[in-house]
Design a protein around this nucleic acid. Structure first.
Lengths: 255, 255
DNA sequence: CGGTACCTTGAGGTTACTCAAATCCAGTGG
DNA sequence: CCACTGGATTTGAGTAACCTCAAGGTACCG
């Protein structure tokens, strides 16, 4: 146990360097060169823990920094003119928040902690400076954004065209997959968001989400007790989800 | 009568340089430095006109180049497992296609010409090289992508939560706005896509799109004759559209 | 032990979908 | 110039899915 595979920087304060962070392999910092990593460690601020329901930022606020979730979970949302929440996504540890505001240096939406959470923040000025010096980092960002784009496109399909059961299936599977990447049990987990958040994310009502989950429980696909979810029949869930996802477009690589 | 309202470009070989292109002000090339512009002119390929219904690329194909629409219009779509088209967007002259594939250097979806069209293509290798040399260009791309992201998010709201009338209103207004930027009449235009495309874009059925437009015509908001649309009551259209859009999040800039 | 917020369940209404048929329109050939 | 034809669009009738409104139930917290 004395030999970790991370670079050994003599450290007394845990996670005082990116390369010691448990999330390093999930974090964009992994892509940085040693020099960049050094700079990142210099400019990056590890914020005080954020309490549940506390906002990271508000829509319309100028983008002061780019944020990486270190622990906990965060909900991104916008407000419709009627004041309804429109949940645009959930962020898990290692995921980066704020890239969508780079265009105008303004947050297009709100971000709020779903549970007590910790984050790393990179002040925008530093971030932009690093970007302007490093095409590599730029490309990493482009890549992250184009990934987020792909995901949002997927959500577009989910929300717009699929029936409630399929939407919920996709939601649960997405969560499961992301938790697995973080070495958490993909078959049993706790939802950190409430039914309203899920409904607003999937474009459904609370009641429909609840009814749908109940039906899936009755069918033996999942088990639900409040925020605890257990996936019993992953195959069935995937079967249901497949209905909606775009096919793997990969074309036969014939010469 | 001799004077058509088209742009008059002198010359037999029109648009042999980006800076002479009628679209220059709309094209990302505008953001390039003189040096970059020179390189762009070197590497950029002005493709032969593409006929209606001809594909620019297929989903799953490796990303060989980034494309800018020069004239005409293009439809982007993906296929669901059932083989249904899922229209992800429409591209007008000056708009750039292919950025969403940068992450994996693979096209996530298909692109097909809705009418006879012309494009400029930048081979991916050249594009990536230019990106790696120019942080500025990188930032332009980041900005474009984050804009596309914002738009897709908006579409997400449109498709997922709004009633048919609001979706159609938003669609028409979006088109109108983009045409206006291109100095075309924003109150009277021809749809280059058919009802099926619109329906697949908005997450509705053909019949619902048709019925909705008919109802709006009956209400005196628009006039529709096949692919020709005239906006009669823009205010009413905007009123209807406002229902769905996220509120302008700008917070009072106090101090 | 009571209160509150969250979640579930039920009944009825509304919207958009499905299926089906009529109409319109662009392009073609006479 | 007109008739013809196949595809696109519109319109109609009935249905299914989801929403709304309303009432219970449950869990957590003081």
């Amino acid at each position: 146990m004395t030999s970790k595979s991370t670079v050994r920087t003599l450290g007394e304060q845990p996670e005082s360097h990116c390369q010691d962070c448990a999330l390093f392999s999930l974090c964009f910092a992994q892509e940085a060169s040693p020099d960049e990593l050094a700079e990142l460690n210099r400019v990056l601020k590890r914020r005080q823990p954020i309490e549940r329901n506390q906002h990271l930022f508000h829509g319309g606020q100028s983008l002061k920094s780019v944020t990486v979730v270190r622990s906990g979970s965060v909900k991104g949302y916008q407000l419709s003119q009627e004041g309804d929440e429109i949940v645009t996504g959930f962020y898990l540890p290692g995921e980066i928040i704020g890239l969508d505001g780079l265009a105008n240096e303004v947050h297009p939406g709100f971000a709020v902690a779903l549970e007590d959470s910790r984050t790393c923040e990179i002040p925008l000025a530093d971030f932009v400076r690093m970007l302007s010096k490093s095409p590599k980092l730029n490309q990493v960002m482009l890549k992250l954004l184009s990934e987020e784009m792909t995901e949002t496109r997927e959500l577009l399909l989910v929300v717009g065209r699929l029936d409630a059961k399929t939407r919920v299936s996709l939601f649960l599977l997405s969560l499961s997959r992301r938790l697995a990447r973080r070495n958490q049990d993909p078959d049993q987990f706790r939802l950190t968001m409430d039914r309203r958040d899920i409904a607003n994310y999937l474009g459904l009502t609370i009641e429909t989400v609840s009814r749908t989950m109940s039906a899936m429980q009755k069918a033996g696909t999942i088990e639900v007790r409040g925020k605890l979810v257990r996936i019993l029949e992953r195959k069935a869930l995937e079967q249901q989800a497949r209905q909606g996802l775009p096919e793997d477009n990969r074309i036969a690589r014939s010469g």
